[in-house]
Simulated assay, not measured.
Amino acid sequence: DLQKLAKEYQFSLVTNPSDATVHIDGKLVGRTPLNVTLEEGTKSISVSKAGYQTYTETFVLNRNISKSITLTSMVQNYQLSVITSPSGADIYVNNAYIGRSPLSVTLEGGTKNLRIERSGYETYTENFILDRSISKSITLTPQVKEYRLSVTSSPSNALVYINGTYQGRTPLTLTLREGSYAIRVTADGYEDFSTNVTLASDRQVSATLYAKKARLTIETEPTNASVFVDNVYVGRSPLSVDLDAGRHTIRVEKSGYITDSKDVNLAAGTSSSTKITLIEERPVARITISSDPSNARIFINGKDYGRSNRVVELDPGYYEVVLVLDGYRVSVTYRYFGKGDHNLSFNLSRID
C-alpha cells in the first residue's frame, strides 16, 4: 500500500494580553505570540494566563491559519481598608467617591488610583494593584500656606536678610510659607534694624534706619576742663561722647585759661580722638583812671599811657601813677594793683 503523506500548515496565534501559555492537543507548544508548523487535522487549543479565563477551541487545520484572541479577565474581589491621620478624610478610588476614613470596602481586583482629600491638608494620591486584600495607614501632610511679606526701609536700597539669608534690597516683596521669620535690614552707616514676624497673613515691615553714632574721645591739657559740643555741655575732660556723623564744634573752657574750640568731622560708626591744649590766661589788673578835670596826661612808672579818662591793663604789681594837666598841680599815687578791676580817681588842684 502506498502511505499517504501528511501535509503541514503554519499556525500563528497572538493574544491580548500576550505571554499566555498555549497547549495544542494537550501538548505545551509555547507562549504567545506563537508561530508553529503543525500537521493538518483537527486541533484542540487551550490558552491560559493567570488572572484570566482559560480559552479553548477545536478547529480544523487544513490551511495556514492566524488567530487573535482577547482573553477574558477573571473578576476577583478584594478588601481595601484605609485609615488616615487625621481621620474624616474623603476617599476616592479611580475618581469615584467611596466614603470617609476610616473605611473598609470590597473592590474588584486590578490597578487602582487612590486619592485622599481633607481640608487643610495636602491631597494624597497613590497608584497600586489590588491583587489581594490590602490595609493602608496614611498620615496626611498639613497644607502649606503661603503669604506675602513686604519690606520697606527709610532710607531705601537697604540689604534684607531673612533667617540669616540675604534676600535682596528694599523695597522687597517675597512669598513665604506660613511660619516665624527673623528679619534684619542693614545699610552702610546705619544701625541694623531687626524684628521677628509670624506669617499667618500678608505682612508689611517698615524699617526706619538710624545713622550710626561716631565715638569721639576728647582730651585737654590741662584736664578737668568743661567740654561743650555744638554749644551743649557734655562733661569734663577727659571724656568720650557718641555723636551723629558729620561736623561738630568742640569748645573747651577752664578758669584761668583762654577758651579754645575746634571743628571735627566724624564718620558714622568710627572712633576718633582729639586733644585741645589750653593757653593759660595772663593775670591782668584792669585800672579805670579818671580825673576832674579830665584830659590829664597819665604816666605809669614813667611811661605815657595817654590821657584821662581811660582804662589801662597792667600786670598785677606796684605802680606809680602820675597825672599832669597844664594849670594844675601834678597828682601822684603809688599803690599795689592786684588781678581784677580797679578804679582810680584824681581831683586835680589849680595852680594859683
Rank of each mutant, 00 (worst) to 15 (best):
T15S: 14
S18G: 15
H23P: 00
D25G: 11
G26P: 10
V29H: 08
P33Q: 04
L34S: 05
K43G: 00
V47K: 00
S48Y: 07
G51V: 09
Y52Q: 01
T54K: 12
V60T: 09
I69E: 07
Q79I: 07
L80K: 14
S85G: 03
S85N: 13
P86N: 02
S87F: 02
S101F: 04
L103I: 09
L107M: 14
G110N: 12
N127G: 05
D131P: 01
D131I: 02
R148G: 00
L149E: 09
T152A: 03
T152V: 02
N157F: 06
A158R: 00
L159A: 01
Y161L: 06
N163F: 02
T165C: 02
G168K: 06
T170L: 04
P171H: 12
L172R: 04
T173I: 13
T173P: 15
L176C: 07
G179C: 01
Y181W: 09
A182E: 11
Y190W: 00
E191Q: 08
N196S: 12
S206G: 00
A211M: 03
L216Q: 03
V227R: 00
F228L: 05
Y233P: 10
V234C: 09
G246E: 13
T249C: 13
I258W: 12
L266W: 13
G269W: 10
T270I: 09
S273A: 11
S273L: 02
K275H: 07
E281N: 03
R286I: 05
I287N: 02
I287S: 02
S291Q: 03
P293Q: 13
L314C: 10
E320Y: 02
F337M: 08
F337R: 07
G338D: 14
S349F: 14
I351K: 10
